[in-house]
């Protein structure tokens, strides 16, 4: 009972953290979505040099830890004269990182689309660019929803490391409250529950979205 009272007493403060976590996630996810389309299209349809650059970008961001990327942006870039606040650094790191992953999902989705679709588009007199925009992407984006929604949930969970560079979000609030009250376990168990609820809500939302965008007879078979 005492525990519940404690949880209720820290809820407002943690609530502020939750809002920051959600804003951070939303910004990073939006950035990632735009970036992913550019990277995937650049990698698949761009001229040689663009394609190679996109590939290296993706390799780098998928091959190194997110925390290292965050440190590079927050601690490293200032030595090149680029200063970002801890919050902005976090959004940048999560967005740039997630963009690389989502680009690969998108590429996989495009490759799973029948070659005939492109041919049919070209045969109708579409340019390659139009065919990509009007035929390939709309299909690929539907295919990419399940892995993309996983990535959004990933990003939500990973925003918790933003506090390691001092950004204000759920985890940093929790750390402060825990140290202040000297109740680490009680606090972090509550934080765990909050994250579980957030993940559950997001999962339900994506399931709903997937059902809504479903086209009969059009799904990835596996």
């Amino acid at each position: 009972m005492e525990l519940i009272t404690y949880w209720i007493s820290i809820l407002p403060e943690l609530g502020n953290g939750v809002i920051n976590t959600l804003i951070m996630t939303f910004l990073a996810v939006s950035m990632s979505a735009v970036l992913a389309v550019i990277l995937a299209m650049g990698r698949m349809y761009g001229p040689r040099i663009i394609s190679t650059l996109c590939k290296w970008y993706i390799e780098f961001f998928r091959g190194t830890p997110l925390l290292a990327q965050l440190f590079i942006i927050y601690y490293g870039l200032p030595s090149w004269g680029l200063n970002f606040s801890s919050f902005t650094s976090a959004v940048l790191a999560f967005g740039l990182n997630s963009g690389a992953y989502v680009a690969e999902y998108l590429r996989g989705a495009v490759q799973s689309i029948d070659k005939g679709q492109m041919t049919a588009g070209l045969a109708m007199g579409m340019t390659k660019f139009t065919a990509i925009r009007k035929i390939i992407l709309p299909q690929a984006l539907r295919f990419v929803i399940p892995p993309w929604s996983n990535d959004v949930i990933y990003t939500l969970k990973y925003t918790s490391i933003a506090f390691l560079v001092g950004a204000q979000e759920l985890m940093s609030k929790a750390k402060i409250i825990a140290s202040f009250n000297f109740r680490f376990i009680d606090t972090f168990v509550f934080v765990a529950i909050i994250y579980l609820i957030l993940v559950l809500l997001l999962t339900l939302f994506f399931n709903w979205l997937e059902r809504k965008l479903k086209i009969p007879g059009f799904e990835i078979k596996n």
């Binding site: 949930i153 969970k157 990973y158 918790s160 490391i161 985890m171 825990a178 680490f184 376990i185 972090f188 168990v189 934080v191 765990a192 994250y195 579980l196 993940v199 559950l200």
Partner: peptide, 18 residues
């Protein structure tokens, strides 16, 4: 489900402090 849904950092703290 639980261990996939929790941030790694939260699990780390729970073990470390707990």
């Amino acid at each position: 489900w639980v261990f996939r849904s929790l941030p790694a950092l939260v699990i780390l703290y729970l073990w470390y402090f707990g």
